[in-house]
């Protein structure tokens, strides 16, 4: 276990680098697999110092569900934003909203912030110094409380289940 840990400090990162290399080569052959394996071992090992403690993803099946949901939301959100942009701009109601975070791990917070930036009319603008509040800018916010509830139910809860299940 400890030897494996030393050779592959970030197994998921190594796996995605191996897949990424195959995609870059646009084929799966013995040569590209070997080269990809070498790179997938070397690069995480060399950059080990820069990586923060990775969270333990304990519910990988939920993670897939979450990714699918976000992808669908991105498409729906884009239709909404397109409608907002093409519609009359006098009717837009922009707002800065404070979102109180319940996630604790830095990695899951950054995943949540990226998700917020990619989905309906919201961009995460800043995070407070104590990592407790997220500042969100919304393009057309009718009700701040409803937006916070929506994000909490739809994105934060699944992320909590995926990354922080051991703490509960």
């Amino acid at each position: 276990m400890s030897l494996l840990k030393r050779v592959l400090p970030h197994p998921w990162l190594s796996l995605s680098m191996l897949i990424g290399w195959q995609l870059l080569m646009n084929q799966v052959s013995a040569g590209s697999l070997i080269m990809g394996a070498i790179l997938a071992c070397l690069i995480p090992w060399m950059t080990n110092v820069f990586w923060p403690n990775p969270p333990r993803a304990c519910r990988v099946d939920r993670l897939f569900l979450f990714v699918c949901r976000v992808l669908i939301d991105i498409v729906v959100a884009n239709l909404q934003v397109a409608k907002l942009i093409l519609g009359p701009r006098r009717e837009l109601r922009p707002a800065f909203v404070l979102f109180p975070l319940t996630l604790e791990h830095e990695f899951s917070i950054s995943v949540l912030a990226s998700t917020i930036s990619l989905t309906p009319g919201t961009v995460s603008a800043d995070i407070s110094a104590d990592r407790k509040t997220l500042l969100i800018h919304g393009l057309d916010v009718g009700d701040e409380q409803a937006l916070i509830e929506h994000i909490r139910r739809r994105y934060e809860q699944p992320l909590k289940e995926v990354f922080e299940c051991s703490k509960r």
């Binding site: 991105i74 498409v75 959100a77 884009n78 934003v81 397109a82 942009i85 701009r89 837009l92 922009p94 930036s117 990619l118 009319g121 961009v123 603008a125 800018h137 393009l139």
Partner: peptide, 18 residues
């Protein structure tokens, strides 16, 4: 078209990416 910077930020980050 949009009037201020923070609102303009929404266009490129979502529509253009998709």
């Amino acid at each position: 078209k949009l009037p201020d910077f923070f609102m303009r930020l929404h266009g490129p980050t979502k529509a253009t990416t998709l």
